[in-house]
Computed example of a mutant assay.
Amino acid sequence: MTRTAKSTPVGEEIAPPLPAFPTIPRHEVLARLAALRTTPIGDLKAQWRTLFGKEPPPFSRSYIESRLAYRIQELAYGGLRPETRARLEALGERLDGGNVVLRRIRADSRPLPGTRLVREWQGVEHVVTVRPDDFEYEGRPYRSLSAVARHITGTRWNGWTFFGLRGAGA
């Protein structure tokens, strides 16, 4: 008996078969979620392998717990509807214009316009408003938080650190 190789048209890839994930009965969801807090980390990582079909990331316990909690609910109740996924994809395309490099940059690295940053310095409360392209302090625009921090303190500061958006030394 001879086997004939199937040919794949040039440019097309054959997708590997999707792994089969367990279904989780809805009546077990609350108990499983509650158990995550007391489950040893080794068992959490084993659950990750079962529920995601891959090795767990080297992140904190709280991250693993939160992702497992989401996955348990997703497998029990279903994930996002295809329409919702398509809508999120379309919104992402509008934000980054299809640029993969921009997509990898965290969108939440800058506070949203309208956010008020409050910092007490030498007994005085200072309020900065985030605007789309700059920052407003005492009715004046500033190009960066560092410029605002320099105006307030008279010394050079990392504005993100001064306003508590990033830890010192980060």
Rank of each mutant, 00 (worst) to 15 (best):
W48T: 00
W48I: 01
T50F: 04
T50R: 05
L51V: 01
L51N: 02
F52S: 01
K54H: 12
E55F: 00
P58F: 10
F59C: 05
F59G: 04
R61D: 11
S62E: 15
S62H: 14
S62Q: 14
I64S: 01
I64T: 02
I64D: 04
E65W: 05
E65P: 12
E65C: 09
S66D: 02
S66H: 01
R67A: 12
L68K: 02
A69W: 01
A69T: 00
A69Y: 01
Y70W: 14
Y70G: 13
Y70C: 12
R71P: 13
E74A: 14
L75F: 13
L75T: 10
A76W: 09
A76Y: 09
Y77P: 06
G78F: 02
G78E: 01
P82S: 03
E83W: 08
T84N: 11
T84K: 15
R85D: 12
A86D: 13
R87P: 09
L88G: 05
L88S: 06
G92M: 06
E93N: 07
E93D: 12
E93P: 03
D96T: 04
G98H: 02
G98M: 02
N99M: 08
V100F: 12
V100C: 08
V101T: 13
V101P: 06
V101G: 11
V101M: 15
V101N: 14
V101H: 15
L102S: 10
L102Q: 09
R104I: 13
R104W: 15
R104P: 13
R106T: 15
A107S: 12
S109E: 15
R110K: 13
R110P: 02
R110N: 12
P111S: 04
P111F: 03
L112F: 09
L112C: 10
G114L: 05
T115F: 00
T115L: 00
T115Q: 00
R116Y: 13
R116K: 14
V118R: 06
R119E: 03
R119Q: 05
R119W: 01
R119A: 01
W121Q: 06
Q122W: 04
Q122Y: 05
Q122N: 08
Q122I: 07
Q122A: 07
G123R: 07
E125N: 06
V128S: 02
V128F: 02
R131V: 14
R131L: 15
R131P: 10
P132E: 11
P132F: 10
D133T: 14
D133I: 07
F135K: 05
F135C: 03
F135A: 02
F135N: 03
E136W: 11
E136M: 11
E136A: 11
Y137Q: 09
Y137M: 05
Y137L: 04
R140W: 15
R140V: 15
Y142C: 01
Y142G: 05
